[in-house]
């Protein structure tokens, strides 16, 4: 039986986490509104939404990384939405100023180093990865990855393109091998001695610690995690977020789900499931994240991550970081 149309909310999601499905299930239990999901790549969702236009079935659009959300907004696919609950739930810096998208979880880009080869002080900043100290000792994933792009976009916004170019070239010069694989592969490569340090999203580190594969747990025991730039501008953070589709047929249901995502209940549920940081300081993080302590975050306008993305891609390309 198809649920009553009013009791449905359709989600286009570029996040493929089991945690999200549990969140939606909890939302269904709490409200009786059924959540139907179409997960796909952010770029592909964007193309599909464009074609669908005002005939789309999508009510809420969910994506990891502010850069993706910014593109949706630029394509006119998100409508500005503001409610008191949202404003209360999401810190101003972690949402679109006009309310086109709202963050509901937070991740940090961190440095992973091999404990037997590197002192933590040597990798206190992302700048350190570009120093000659690490010649042939850095591994990284492809620069086309959105996390990697957003990180450089933030740097461009903060310090200008020349600084960003110098940094990318410096890190590129320190590569132990050509970029390949994903964040997890980089951590394993450092653990296996292919290099001394890399950069990745923080949760992959914690996930490996809990892996069912003994080899993964052993690998992660050899490496340490640094939240970089605590003495400087702060660690680069990014969000997963959501926005109401411009042509949503059930915008009030979409808002209802969006408000749920930033509610205390959902935040408390999500944090331990996905090893991400809650969107606001008041919600306790998972124990192992809490152990990292409070940390200083890089202060950059969220929309710069999207705005500067193409420029970041070009700088990587020029630096030879493929």
């Amino acid at each position: 039986m198809q649920p009553n149309d009013a009791q449905v909310v359709n989600v286009y999601s570029a996040r493929h986490y089991d945690a999200d499905r549990r969140l939606y299930a909890a939302f269904e239990d709490a409200t009786g509104v059924a959540v139907r999901v179409l997960p796909a790549n952010a770029e592909q969702l964007l193309e599909r939404l464009r074609v669908e236009g005002d005939a789309t079935e999508a009510d809420l659009i969910v994506a990891a990384d502010a850069g993706n959300l910014w593109r949706m907004k630029e394509a006119g696919l998100l409508r500005n939405t503001t409610t008191p609950a949202l404003e209360q739930g999401v810190p101003a810096r972690l949402r679109d100023p006009n309310g086109a998208y709202w963050g509901f979880s937070k991740r940090a880009r961190v440095i992973i180093y091999r404990k037997d080869a590197v002192q933590p002080e040597e990798v206190a900043s992302f700048d350190d990865l570009a120093r000659p100290r690490f010649r042939s000792q850095i591994v990284a994933r492809s620069s086309t990855n959105v996390y990697q792009l957003s990180m450089l976009a933030a740097r461009i916004e903060r310090l200008g393109p020349d600084n960003a170019r110098a940094w990318a070239s410096g890190v590129r010069a320190n590569f132990a091998r050509d970029p390949r694989g994903n964040d997890t592969d980089q951590i394993k490569a450092v653990a296996a001695g292919e290099a001394q340090a890399t950069l990745c999203n923080h949760y992959y580190f914690f996930r490996l610690m809990r892996s069912e594969d003994g080899a993964d747990r052993e690998a992660v025991s050899k490496v340490g995690l640094i939240l970089p730039d605590q003495a400087g501008a702060g660690t680069h953070v990014n969000i997963s977020g959501a926005g109401v589709a411009t042509h949503a047929k059930r915008p009030e249901r979409a808002v209802q789900l969006l408000e749920y995502l930033v509610s205390d209940a959902a935040q408390a549920l999500l944090a331990p499931l996905n090893d991400e940081f809650p969107i606001r300081p008041g919600v306790p993080a998972a124990p192992e994240l809490a152990a990292l302590g409070a940390f200083k975050e890089e202060e950059v306008a969220l929309d710069a991550l999207g705005r500067r993305q193409a420029e970041a891609a070009r700088i990587y390309e020029e630096a030879g970081w493929r």
């Binding site: 493929h16 986490y17 139907r36 999901v37 179409l38 592909q44 969702l45 994903n182 964040d183 992959y204």
Partner: peptide, 27 residues
């Protein structure tokens, strides 16, 4: 399949991809 399928219509390839893209190779 990823881009053109209807709501709540996962295939094996889509499911495998969703996990792999989240770097959950075990799943």
């Amino acid at each position: 399949t990823l881009i053109l399928r209807p709501f709540d219509f996962d295939t094996l390839a889509v499911r495998a991809y969703a996990y792999a893209s989240d770097e959950r190779l075990l799943e």
